[in-house]
Design a protein around this nucleic acid. Structure first.
Length: 271
DNA sequence: GCGACAG
DNA sequence: ATCTTGTCGC
């Protein structure tokens, strides 16, 4: 059962998010419950068979950045970016950036309905125009199975593109009251240390993973599609030079850069 | 009892 | 997600 979210609470003085209609939320829940049945929780690719990930050639990161003035409105324009890196060197071999229109707001638990379409479109473009550069695995900023309906953004993107995906979140999303306490994280000292996160039925949803030596907070990793959590952890660690895995960090930088340029341009047009 | 909630 | 300065440490 889901917790009530702030956007649905009319008594809230300062709603954190624009309201999404209950009817739409209901449809989204149904869609996610259907999608969750299609998730493949295990390794399906040859490169996933060894600890060294022999045969893994390309890892991509995706991100969407927003203009500061629009980020809290119902719909807005944004920039989506996909950066493909060579594995394991993390050298950028391809990037795609595109201005996109997002027709619905962010609502906790339903990020995919805002961001998955633009991301999938970019990946489709790559498959069509640069088939030799299609990534073997995709790191998605956000959650996979570590999600109220076990179907976060990474699952949506993985199922529609059929590319193995991993959810990589900087913050923990509240699920059925499950939190990660300081107590749970206190043993994590070295890069690669982790704590499994389970739901009330004791099913493993993901993990808190220490991805760099000098970070206080872990990253939250979960599977999206066509990969095991163990392999997902392995991929993420091998992509990390800093706290954020390189492909996501690059995609973040590039999409932000485009937002900045867009804002400068609209500013100069006013004057 | 209230509040917590990926980006 | 975005707004933002300095500051502590290797």
């Amino acid at each position: 059962m889901r917790h009530k979210i702030m956007a649905d609470d009319p008594a809230s003085k300062t709603p954190r998010y624009p309201a999404v209609s209950p009817a739409l939320i209901e449809r989204w829940d149904l869609l996610q419950n259907e999608l969750s049945k299609k998730i493949i929780h295990s390794d399906t690719e040859d490169w996933q068979l060894t600890e060294e990930l022999h045969g893994l050639k390309r890892v991509a990161g995706v991100d969407v950045s927003y203009p500061s003035k629009d980020h809290d409105s119902y719909e807005c324009d944004a920039y989506a970016a996909v950066v493909i890196c060579e594995f394991p060197t993390m050298k950028i071999i391809h990037k795609e950036v595109q201005q996109v229109h997002l027709p619905v707001p962010y609502a906790p638990g339903y990020l995919a309905f805002r961001e998955s379409e633009p991301v999938v479109n970019l990946l489709n473009k790559i498959m069509k125009e640069h088939p030799s550069k299609v990534p073997d695995v995709l790191l998605v900023d956000g959650n996979g199975m570590l999600h109220p309906n076990r179907t976060g953004l990474a699952c949506h993107v993985g199922i529609t593109t059929e590319i193995p995906t991993i959810g990589v979140a900087k913050n923990l999303h509240m699920i059925d009251g499950i939190g990660v306490t300081r107590q749970m994280l206190q043993g994590m000292a070295a890069m690669g240390d982790y704590v499994l996160i389970r739901d009330n039925a004791n099913e493993i949803l993901g993990m808190a993973l220490k991805t760099a030596k000098d970070t206080k907070n872990p990253m939250y990793i979960s599977i999206g599609h066509k990969i095991s959590l163990e392999t997902a952890k392995n991929v993420v660690l091998k992509c990390c030079k800093y706290k954020i895995p390189e492909p996501i960090r690059f995609a973040d930088n590039i999409s932000r850069e485009f937002v900045r340029k867009m804002e400068e341009k609209s500013q100069s047009q006013k004057t």
